[in-house]
């Protein structure tokens, strides 16, 4: 059963992270670890891909790694 410590992989949660600071795909995946969301790896990848397609964040390279970010 869900508890208050559960992490929800939602568009709103992703938006809040990307407004705060640029993040790589790995940074985002760390925020929504399967053991915290209860989703499978495949579900996590699919849901996060759909959310990022909708949000269509800006991209920039930092230390040769592609980062996503949003402005308010």
């Amino acid at each position: 059963t869900p508890s208050s410590s559960d992490v929800l992989l939602t568009e709103d949660a992703v938006r809040r992270y990307l407004i705060r600071k640029p993040m790589t795909t790995k940074d985002l995946l760390k925020k929504f670890q399967t053991k915290r969301t209860g989703l499978s790896s495949e579900q996590t990848v699919n849901v996060l891909a759909q959310i990022l397609k909708r949000l269509n964040p800006e991209r920039k390279n930092i230390n040769d790694k592609m980062h996503f970010y949003l402005t308010e």
């Binding site: 790995k26 790896s41 990848v45 269509n56």
Partner: peptide, 20 residues
């Protein structure tokens, strides 16, 4: 594990590259 995280990141980037 770290390699699982790498695989997930690669899968996610592959999905996004088709779009972006």
């Amino acid at each position: 594990s770290n390699s699982e995280a790498d695989e997930m990141a690669a899968a996610l980037e592959a999905e996004l590259n088709d779009f972006m």
